[in-house]
Amino acid sequence: MAAESTAKLPPAFRAGWVIICCFTALILVYLVLPQFIVLPLSFSDRSFLSFPPSGWSTQWYEKLVANPSWFQAMINSLAIGIPTALLSMVFGTMAALAVARGGFKQAGVISAIVVAPMMLPHVILAIGLYPLMLQLNLLGSYAAATIGHTVIGVPLVFITVTAALARHDFTLELAAMTLGARPWRTFRSVTYPTIRIGIIIGGILAFATSIDELMLALFLTGAGTRTLPRLIWEQMNDYLTPTIAAVATLVFLFTLILLVIVALIQSRSTRLEGWNHD
C-alpha cells in the first residue's frame, strides 16, 4: 500500500501497518460480498438456493420477464422515483439557498429540521403519513408515495447543495446584482451554474433512495402502485426463489450505472472547473 512514509518506521509499527492493511482488505471484501453472491445465484439451474450453483441457466430471468407484476413494479418505482427526485431538487435547493444566504439567526435549527427526516426512523413517518393520506384520499396513489419519498429526499439535496454553496462566496451573487442582474437572472447565470453539480447529485441520491425505500412503500402504496422493493419484500416473505436473485442482480446493475454516472459527473466537474466535489 502506497503510504508515504512507512519505510523508515520501526518494525513493530510496520508490522502493525501490514496487519491493518490486511484487515482493511478483508472488510472491503465483506462490504461487497453479498452483492456478488446474488449474481451467480440468479443464473442457477436449480429452483432452490444452492451456492455455488451446480449448473447455469437463464430461466429465472425468463420467469421474470414472463411475470407482468415485476414489470409493473418497476414502472411504479420509476413513476414515484422520478417525480420524487425532481421535487426534492426544487425544495432542497430552495431550502439550501435560504439557509446559506438568508442570514437567519436560527440557521442551525432550520437545517436540523430539514435534515431530520433523513435521520429519524422511517416507520414513524410512515405511521404518521398513513392517516394523513387517508384523510386526503391519496392513499395508494403515486402522489402519496411521492410525497413520502420527497420528505426523505429533500435532506439529501439540501446537503449536497449546501456543500456546493459553501464552495462559493456570496459575493459572486452580490457582484452579479451590482452588474445589473435581477434575482432570477442572478440565480440562472451565476448561482445555478456553480451549484448545478450539487443539485444533480442530490437528485440522483434522492432518486436512488426512493427506488430502494421500503417502509413508506409498505404503508402508502396500494396493489396498483406497489414498488419494486415492496414486491421483492412480499415475494421474499413467501419463498426464496432465484427469481428474486435475478431481480436483485438487475437492480444492482441499475444502481451501479447510477453510480458510474455520478462518478463521471464528479470527475468531469473536477477536471473542467478545478472544483472538487466529494
Partner: peptide, 12 residues
C-alpha cells in the same frame, strides 16, 4: 446497493 437486496443476500 439496495438494503432489501443486501438483506436478501444475507438470507442466502
Amino acid at each position: 446497493t439496495s438494503v432489501v437486496i443486501r438483506s436478501y443476500a444475507w438470507m442466502v
